[in-house]
Design a protein around this nucleic acid. Structure first.
Lengths: 241, 241
DNA sequence: AGATAACCGCGTACAACGTACCCAGTGGAG
DNA sequence: CTCCACTGGGTACGTTGTACGCGGTTATCT
C-alpha cells in the first residue's frame, strides 16, 4: 500500500522503522501552524511560512504531512483537544453541557479561523473521538442514540452559529488590513444610505438597537444557551433531572 | 474617491456614465461563477475559468468586480435570492418559519459550497436585506428586536448546522475525486479499527445505528425543526398563536 | 464638428502558492 | 561492513489572483 492510498491521515504511521531520526514532528508542525493561523489567519499559514517558523525547509514538511489539506485536519483536531470534557458525564447533564458550550465557544474565540474549515464525517481524529464519547455520554442514559445525535447537533449548531456571528466582523476587519475605526468609517455610508432610504424598517431597528448599551456578549450567549438547554430538557424523560 | 476606497461592493456603481457599452454584466458573471461552483466546487470557480465560461478574457472580469473575494460575496447574495420569503409575515408564524427553513435548506443542498464562505456583517447585499426584512418581520410583532435576533439566529443555526452535516461527506467524496464506493472502501478500515478497539462505545453505537434503515433526511430535518419551533413558541407571548 | 477624457476588452507579466522530483547524507537491519 | 529505507531540503513546474498598459470606443464639452 503506497502513501497515496491512505484516505485518512490518522491511519498513516508517524514514525518510520528505519533511517535517521526525524528532527521535527507532526505535533510541532501543527503547533506552529496553529500559532500562525491565530495571529494572521489560516491563509497566512502557508507551507513555506510554517516551515520557516520551525526553522525547516519548505519541502521537509511533506515528510510528516501528506498535504496542506491534511495538515489543516490535524490543526482542527488539535483544537478539539482544547475543549475540556474530563469527568463527563458527571451526573448533572445541564452542568456538563454548559461546560462544553463555554469550552467550545472559548476555543472558537481563540481560533476564529476554524470557521473557514469544514470538518467532514470521516475525519475522526483522536481528540474529536474523545469529545464525542464524553459529550454524547452525557445524554446517553436518557435518550436513543438518534435522539442524542439530534440534541447534540442542536446545541453545537447554536454555539457555532452564534460565535460565527461574533467573530465574523472582527475577521473582516483583520482581512481588510484596515484599522477598526477606519473600517467603521468606510462602512458607515452604506448602512446610513440603507437606513435613510426608509425601505428597510427592521434593518433600521437593528442598527439603532446596536447603538444602545447591551448585555455583554457572554451574557447574551448564556441567555440563548439557557433557552437551548430548556429545549433539550423538554426532549428528555422526566427521570433525567 | 478611487475604486480602492470602496469598502463595500454594493456601493460601487455597476454602470459607468461614459465610454463604450459593457459587453457583460455583474449578474452574468455571478451566474456563471455559481454554475461552475455548483458543478465542481467553489475552488474550481477561478477567474480564468469563469471568464472562459462566458467567453471573455480573464482580466475583463475586473472591469465588473474588484476582486475574487467580492465576487464570492456577490455569489452568496445571489443565493439568498433563491429563498422564497414573499408574503411574509402571513400571520401564521409557524408556517412562515417552516417555509423559510425548507427554502434555506434546499438552497444549501443545491449549492453546498456556500458552507465554505463565511458571510460577514457588513456585507448586506440586496437579497440578504430583503430576507432579513421579511424573515424578522414574522416575529417582529411579538418580541423585542433583540429577542427576535436571538430566535432567528437559533433557527438559522439549526438549519445550517444540520445541512452542513448532510453535505460534508458528499463534498469530501467530490473533493477526493474518488467514486463513492471506492471512497467508502478506503474509509472502512479506519472506522473498523476504531470499533474493534472497544475504546469508543458511543462511536460504535453511532456506526451501528447508521447501518440500520432510518427516517429520510427530510423527515429527520422536519422532526428537529419541530423541536426548534416549539422552543421558539415557548419564548413568545401567549397572544402569538 | 472636433477634441477630450473616461471607459471598454484583454494580452502580458509577476509574485505567491502547493507540491513533484531529485539529491546527498544517515543510521538500523542483515 | 554493506545495504537501503529513510532524512532534510534545493530546484522547478503548474496554477492562482491580479497590476499594468495597450489600442479602440463613446458620451460629454468646447
Amino acid at each position: 500500500m503506497t502513501d497515496a492510498e491512505y484516505v485518512n491521515i490518522w491511519m498513516r504511521p508517524e514514525r518510520p522503522a528505519r533511517g535517521p531520526k526525524p528532527v521535527y514532528s507532526r505535533a510541532q508542525i501543527t503547533e506552529a501552524a496553529v500559532r500562525i493561523a491565530d495571529a494572521e489567519g489560516l491563509e497566512a499559514a502557508t507551507m513555506r511560512r510554517i516551515a520557516a517558523e520551525i526553522g525547516a525547509g519548505a519541502m521537509s514538511l511533506y515528510r510528516y504531512v501528506p498535504s496542506r489539506d491534511n495538515l489543516v485536519e490535524l490543526m482542527a483536531d488539535r483544537l478539539m483537544g482544547e475543549i475540556d470534557v474530563t469527568g463527563m458525564p458527571s451526573g448533572d447533564w445541564r452542568a456538563d453541557l454548559t461546560r462544553y458550550a463555554d469550552g467550545l465557544r472559548a476555543m472558537w474565540l481563540r481560533h476564529p479561523w476554524i470557521a473557514t474549515v469544514q470538518r467532514s464525517l470521516p475525519s475522526f481524529g483522536p481528540n474529536q473521538l474523545l469529545l464525542i464519547e464524553r459529550l454524547m455520554g452525557v445524554l446517553d442514559a436518557f435518550v436513543s442514540i438518534d435522539e442524542n445525535l439530534g440534541l447534540v447537533a442542536l446545541l453545537t449548531s447554536y454555539i457555532e452559529g452564534t460565535v460565527r456571528e461574533e467573530t465574523s466582523s472582527a475577521e473582516e476587519v483583520r482581512r481588510s488590513g484596515l484599522s477598526e475605526s477606519e473600517w467603521m468609517a468606510r462602512s458607515y455610508p452604506y448602512v446610513d444610505q440603507l437606513v435613510k432610504s426608509g425601505e428597510y424598517p427592521i434593518f433600521t431597528k437593528i442598527v439603532m438597537e446596536a447603538r444602545q448599551p447591551h448585555l455583554s456578549r457572554d451574557d447574551q450567549f448564556r441567555y440563548g444557551l439557557r433557552r437551548v438547554l430548556d429545549c433539550i430538557a423538554a426532549a428528555l424523560p422526566p427521570t433525567a433531572e
